[in-house]
Amino acid sequence: MVRPDIGSQMVDLCAALLLVTCFAIVAQRRLSACVDVFALQSAFLAATAALVAFLTGIHHIYVAAALTVAIKVIVIPRILKKVIERLNVTRELVMNVNIPAGLLICGALVILAFFITQPIIPLGFLLTRDSLSIALAIVMIGFFTMIARKKAVTQVIGFLVMENGLFLAATVAAYGMPLIVELGIFFDVLVAVLIIGIYTHRIQDAFDSVDTSKLTVLKD
């Protein structure tokens, strides 16, 4: 058996790697590279979950880790790559917030996340509780990415980063949701990506662009 303090530090390390990949996504202009970084992030997520499963001996977290690899490392990145290919967009040139400012804002979001979670951290399991702050930080950075970027595809990646943050939160804060819940969440995420794929296709057809800042027909 691994000593608890070492185990706890390993979980923190994995969670920190997840956070680093968030910054990489914010700093990346090329869409296909964004998708690759997202796949890498999901791989770290699966590793974190597997580690927690190993350290706690709760087996259903292994199932969740395996599903993460299957869906978020393999299937969803493939779908997104196909969408990018079909849409013929490779780079995001104009953003609502430029990259250096975006990175600074993300840094501030991390501090905010630690601030919000500070009072509730002592409740958690000794092994994993420090990672809850990182999970909230990832959720907020995902949210920020959705606001900062204009291309439909990067907004989707922002949404998926949020999902990864939520999954991390569930794993580290509560040792995973019950299996039926995890399955439901994975199903919903997969369907969401498929629907978004359909949407980007139709938006491309109707507007000749996947730049969502061109969606301005509706006003008060």
Binding site: I120, L123, G124, L132, L136, V139, G142, F143, M146, F159, M162, E163, L166, A169, A170, A173, A174, M177, I185, A192
Partner: peptide, 17 residues
């Protein structure tokens, strides 16, 4: 999606407590 994701975070914290 953003709304529902935030709601899930709230749900997770409830489960956590």
């Amino acid at each position: 999606s953003v709304g529902i994701a935030l709601a899930l975070f709230g749900t997770i914290i409830l489960y956590y407590t």
